[in-house]
Simulated scan of single mutants.
Amino acid sequence: MKKTTILTAGIILFSSLLGATSTFAAEGGNYDSKGEITFKAGTNPESPLDPVNPDPTKPVVPVDPVDPTGPIGGTNGPLSIDYASSFQFGEQEILTTDKTYYAQVQAYTDSESVAKTGPNYVQVTDKRGTQKGWELSVVQKAQFATTEGEELAGAKLGLANGHAISDQQTGLNDTDKAAITPTATVSTGETGLVPGAKTVIMTAAEKQGVGTWLYDMGTADTAAESVSLLVPGKSVKLRAAYKTTLTWTLSDTPVAP
């Protein structure tokens, strides 16, 4: 009987210790710590990208076919124009009939120093962090003219086959791609620029156009005929170079969906 009592006491004491251990563990409680990161609008200029495969980790060096010292650098700020192609129509014989000439395609050196060609293009970047949308437009400041001011009367510069491209489209289905992609307003047919008049090229509605986007003038198949210059046969043509300037403007004016 004495042994039974001692054994029973031992069991009760052991059970009490287990209960105490379990209670202490439950009283450890919870503790929350935090993590935080804050972004601000980006201001550093972006490098030109490959118009065929715009990978931001593989910038390219474009060739300016008009100015051998170019191209000029892009604009600074959270909403920037990073690059715009210049159009070279080459040396042509004087004709007395209407003739359409096509600009040379964009030449560039890729990130591995390989010489390539692709569509002429304009590259823009939105790093504002607002998703408010934007508008890209162009103005041909004046008619093609010589350094002495002799104009190429009736000449019409045309853009065609435009489309928006970005690495952000990679892997998305058509619905998700459409939700983030700006609208290329000069996409089908040909739009002729009117000297002195604004032409809207690409628009991004709210939540579209975030990051870097390219307006490509043509694809691998159509790039060689996507930038044109129609010269009337009756226009006077001197033995001289005719030039014009295109001013590209990126506005933060929100565009309605």
Rank of each mutant, 00 (worst) to 15 (best):
Phe144Gln: 01
Ala224Ile: 02
Gly149Leu: 05
Trp248Val: 02
Ile201Arg: 02
Gly171Ala: 14
Arg128Phe: 06
Asp216Ser: 14
Thr21Gly: 11
Lys34Arg: 09
Val66Leu: 01
Gly171Leu: 14
Gly129Pro: 08
Thr247Val: 14
Ala204Thr: 04
Ile81Phe: 04
Ser15Lys: 02
Asp167Ile: 04
Thr21Pro: 00
Gly35Gln: 13
Lys237Trp: 11
Glu225Arg: 04
Gln143Val: 10
His163Val: 00
Glu46Asn: 09
Ser187Met: 02
Thr130Asn: 11
Ala25Met: 15
Thr23Leu: 15
Glu151Met: 11
Val63Asp: 07
Gly10Ser: 11
Ala84Tyr: 01
Val124Thr: 10
Ile12Glu: 04
Glu150Asp: 12
Gly74Tyr: 04
Gly129Phe: 10
Val61Phe: 07
Leu238Trp: 12
Glu206Arg: 14
Tyr102Trp: 10
Lys141Arg: 07
Leu246Glu: 00
Asp126Asn: 11
Ile201Met: 15
Val200Leu: 05
Lys34Phe: 10
Asp82Thr: 12
Gly73Lys: 14
Ser80Lys: 08
Thr125Asn: 09
Leu230Asn: 14
Lys34Trp: 08
Gly35Ser: 14
Val63Ser: 05
Glu135Ser: 12
Pro257Trp: 07
Gly73Arg: 10
Val61Ile: 14
Ile94Asn: 12
Gly209Thr: 03
Thr247Asp: 06
Gly158Tyr: 03
Glu190Ile: 09
Asn173Leu: 11
Arg128His: 08
Val227Glu: 00
Val60Phe: 00
Thr8Trp: 13
Gln143Glu: 08
Tyr31Cys: 07
Ala103His: 00
Ala155Asn: 05
Lys141Leu: 13
Gly189Gln: 01
Gly233Asn: 13
Thr249Arg: 08
Ala41Phe: 08
Val236His: 13
Thr8Phe: 15
Val52Pro: 03
Thr69Ile: 07
Met1His: 12
Thr146Lys: 11
Thr185Met: 07
Ala107Ile: 01
Thr175Ser: 15
Leu17Phe: 15
Lys116Phe: 00
Gly196Arg: 04
Val200Ile: 13
Val114Gly: 03
Ala107Lys: 09
Ala84Trp: 01
Thr249Asn: 12
Thr222Cys: 03
Gln104Ala: 15
Gly211Ile: 08
Pro45Gln: 05
Gly10Tyr: 08
Val139Lys: 06
Ala160Lys: 04
Pro48Lys: 03
Ser80Pro: 05
Lys198Ala: 06
Pro119Thr: 02
Leu229Ala: 07
Lys34Met: 07
Ala204Lys: 02
Ile165Thr: 09
Ala107Pro: 02
Val227Gln: 00
Asp67Ile: 04
Thr212Tyr: 06
Leu229Arg: 08
Ala20Val: 15
Arg128Val: 10
Ala20Glu: 10
Ala179Val: 06
Ser113Gln: 15
Pro232Tyr: 11
Thr191Val: 10
Gly29Tyr: 04
